[in-house]
Design a protein around this nucleic acid. Sequence first.
DNA 1: AATGTTTACGCATAGCGTAAGCATG
DNA 2: CATGCTTACGCTATGCGTAAACATT
Lengths: 279, 279
Amino acid sequence: MESRPLRYFVAVAEELNFTRAAERLGISAPPLSRAIRALEAELGAVLFERTTHSVALTPAGTVLLEQARIALDALDAAGHRARRAVEPKLVLAVKADSGGGLLEGILAGYAADPAAVPIGVRLCGWGEQASLVRRGEADAALVHEPFDHTGLDAETVAVEPCVAALPVGHPLAAREAVAVAELGLPFSAPVSAAELHRFQVGIVERHGIRDLSQILALVELGELVTLLPVSVGERYPRPGVAYVPVPDAPPAVLRIVWPRESRSRAVAALVRAAAGRRD
Amino acid sequence: MESRPLRYFVAVAEELNFTRAAERLGISAPPLSRAIRALEAELGAVLFERTTHSVALTPAGTVLLEQARIALDALDAAGHRARRAVEPKLVLAVKADSGGGLLEGILAGYAADPAAVPIGVRLCGWGEQASLVRRGEADAALVHEPFDHTGLDAETVAVEPCVAALPVGHPLAAREAVAVAELGLPFSAPVSAAELHRFQVGIVERHGIRDLSQILALVELGELVTLLPVSVGERYPRPGVAYVPVPDAPPAVLRIVWPRESRSRAVAALVRAAAGRRD
DNA sequence: AATGTTTACGCATAGCGTAAGCATG
DNA sequence: CATGCTTACGCTATGCGTAAACATT
């Protein structure tokens, strides 16, 4: 099994369109089509049901997609970890503004550990943290649940209630507390963390958001209403935005994650510093 | 990161000799040498310290070797699992004669589980079981400790005392029990499972052994003395071989292992059948 | 008819082998 | 001085692009 055909396969499986997948890969459609056919021949399994206007994964293709992502991540990880082994330094991936002030404490606590090595923080975008760890670009990451745990171990760093971010003029902005149902969000009564996450991802994708200040700007303009961990609200006050507790929203769970097979003392020390020796 | 240079790298890292590695890969030495240099350039890291007569891994190379094995196993696994997804069937890897009669019970118990699918047993050689699971050629395996747990989850199936296999004429053959120290094996006083395992591997490699009957034949001839789980001795009596309990030997631990990320109902059912609902 | 996958054909280049160079034990 | 890694050079074959055919909506 070679890596290139697998990369091609993943592109097609994600786009479900040979032309777009080829563009993404920087090649033309014909060699891509042939590569997939060759892969199917090698495996002795049909990977896509295709008509001229539709492409869909077969059961074998679905299995291969899941396994290929794991394998390609592991391949990337091999390269990145070997490269970074030249001058060992810990990298912690963090989404900007997500720690709500905990990051400083974690880094200070870590620096006091005898197993500490130099550490750097890698800021990244929404939902990239876990992937950076899987691909070996970071040694650990701070991530809010829910996320894909594949290949990762995790410890809880903080659990805290959510607040709604509302424009100051909003009817609910002066309330002591609000219920999720009152916010007019597309949720059924007891909202799950997974539903909330899908909603947030939807916002981020629709508006092309890159950081928290963009969200708050949109809230201020009355363009959207969203939920945030209370510590984030406290840390980023903004004149035009009011934060109101939402007791029935699922709590925000912040976790530190690291590669499952890691036996690094330095990573273990960082986890201890972040999770507060909860072991 | 492409897979072929990594395969080449692993061959060199394992052989610590470009010529032998090239033979093993079925290519000649020059392209191998170039491939490694290209890989080093791509990574920006020296992987081997080489003089004309010696090749040694650098720290970066050591990291890459470990990571490359994981990645290449995952790559193999992607192919095998996709291929096998065409007609789903569970494969259990077992070393011939290692189950001591437990295998039948496990398979029968599994067949009674509502989540059961067709199952096949894949017989394999010494120390191959875990690797077969990692590479996706099997869905689970029965393995004696110790083995490399990388990427695998495990449950204990059986723990049992060891017996020494001795030729009937041996001075200790008529004893009720013997101590490890009396057997004249190259161990210090409290023998660890790891030491015992290294010793067994040594025997297997030196004599080119492929199954239990070869070992027993050598014991019968007085060529060697070894330790076995008691159930194996009971199951394979042999006129010229006496089995004597060795109370101070580490117990034999048989485990069932499966891929860490597996969420298969069928695998879970097999584990239940093997581990006896110990959850 | 228009969109999107596939086949046909010609070309560039990645990767291999042979032969010779060179450093080290 | 012999073993074994490396450089030099020429070739094969894998894999890409363009053009055109074909099938489906």
